[in-house]
């Protein structure tokens, strides 16, 4: 579709110090496209929390961002361990992250709740042992 721009990123797992590079790339690309700053910020928070999750839980994955006229859709796909209980994972404060992640200022069970808070629509599909796909839509006002 002509009116849609797609950005794709490979997110490397394991290296926590580089987590956020894809989100930074998305943010800069959206700025160049001239999107509203509040939309860019919401997309950035959703993408960044999701990217951190992929790095710490799933050894990386792929991020696809579709920028349309009416909304921005972020699709994060990994082949990590999967989420056994999605409802539980969505609860603020529920975490399975290691202490090393808390040292980074994350890992206290706020990632998915933050992503839900700042997206207009969010779906989480996960199969244990296969992987997880998180889709978030941020509408352009």
């Amino acid at each position: 579709m002509d009116d849609c721009i797609t950005l794709t990123y490979q997110v490397e797992g394991g290296d926590l110090s580089h987590a956020g590079e894809a989100s930074s790339g998305v943010k800069q690309a959206l700025r160049k496209l001239g999107l509203d700053p509040s939309v860019i910020r919401r997309v950035s928070v959703c993408m960044y929390e999701g990217e951190i999750n992929m790095v710490i839980h799933a050894n990386g994955g792929t991020a696809r961002v579709d920028v349309g006229l009416d909304d921005v859709t972020i699709t994060l796909t990994d082949t990590g361990p999967g989420i056994p209980d999605i409802d539980k994972a969505m609860q603020a404060g529920f975490t399975t992250a290691a202490d090393s992640v808390r040292d980074l200022g994350f890992g206290a069970g706020m990632g998915l709740p933050n992503m839900k808070k700042y997206s207009d629509e969010m779906t989480v599909e996960s199969t244990v042992g296969v992987g997880t796909t998180v889709t978030m839509v941020v509408r352009i006002e």
Partner: peptide, 17 residues
């Protein structure tokens, strides 16, 4: 203002403008 020192502090500040 933070007492945390790692690259994620800069990333967070960047995401929040």
């Amino acid at each position: 203002l933070t007492g945390l020192v790692n690259p994620q502090v800069v990333r967070t500040a960047e995401m929040m403008d």
